[in-house]
């Protein structure tokens, strides 16, 4: 009996990610959701610019590689052309919450019926460890070498909290993948975000608090601990908006 296998929607190729990076886990959860809902043949994924730029190599559905930050706009174009297809974006914090903030906010405000998977690891990975819009106050990065000073570099952005104020957003939940319990919760949230799209409820976003051991300068184990001790207290997990649940959680 097979108890563990590669999801059908995940391509049989090795990831390029660093040891201890949680992109691999989230990729798998997305593929599992696509498999569970049986939508691989009608799904179109939009890859970002950032470490997950090569996501188009990792999912078996049709994929588009967007310009930096523009994935929600590209997704809008696809979804409006093929409203019965399933469209998701997979974006990092620089892509979604810095250069693509306008696209993120306006796709949300329009209530585009798409699914956004948002990887928040508080740093730019691809370019080698610069400050992200979600870098924590005091966090040392290569462009905040003396620690992020909110008086100079500004405050981090809480995406789920912000988007939950927009009428077009059907569902916003923040999850983490730093332990098995959280991974199971994340899996459920991602699947719900796709189900919402099938049910034509509007925009669903799942923010995944993630790691970057390489650019945080930590071992993979230390990075998971840092998520617990630093990231989650600043970015509390939970459902920030759910049109199904009256009176929204949190």
């Amino acid at each position: 009996m097979v108890v563990f296998d590669r999801p059908k929607s995940l391509s049989p190729v090795p990831f390029h990610y660093c040891p201890g990076c949680t992109h691999g886990i989230v990729h798998r959860l997305v593929a599992e959701a696509i498999d569970a809902l049986g939508i691989e043949g009608k799904t179109i994924g939009i890859a970002p610019v950032g470490c997950s730029v090569f996501a188009y190599n990792y999912f078996e559905c049709d994929m588009i590689e967007a310009a930096h930050g523009r994935a929600p706009a590209v997704a809008t174009g696809v979804k409006r052309t093929h409203p019965d297809n399933i469209v998701f974006t997979y974006q990092g914090d620089g892509d979604l919450a810095a250069i693509g903030t306008a696209e993120t906010v306006h796709a949300s405000a329009r209530g585009e019926n798409i699914t956004i998977i948002f990887i928040n690891n508080a740093i730019y990975g691809m370019t080698g460890g610069q400050m992200a819009p979600t870098s924590l106050p005091g966090q040392v990065t290569t462009t905040s070498p003396y620690g992020r000073d909110v008086n100079i570099q500004g405050n981090p952005i809480h995406i789920c909290e912000m988007l939950s104020t927009l009428d077009g957003v059907a569902y916003a939940e923040r999850v983490a993948v730093n332990n098995p319990k959280n991974v199971l919760k994340a899996k459920k949230a991602i699947q719900k975000a796709f189900q919402n799209q099938i049910d034509k409820k509007g925009l669903s976003i799942v923010e995944v608090v993630s790691t970057c051991p390489t650019n945080w300068g930590m071992t993979p184990a230390e990075a998971l601990k840092w998520v617990d001790e630093k990231m989650i207290p600043f970015y509390p997990l939970g459902v920030y908006k759910d049109v199904d649940a009256k009176g929204d959680a949190q």
Binding site: G69, I99, Q130, T143, P145, Y146, I152, Q153
Partner: peptide, 23 residues
Amino acid sequence: TELAEYMAKRLPKVGGLCLQAES
């Protein structure tokens, strides 16, 4: 990127400003 990183390190020491923009 090294150009911006160098500025981030050096400019605060000489009374300057290196600001990473959102785009």
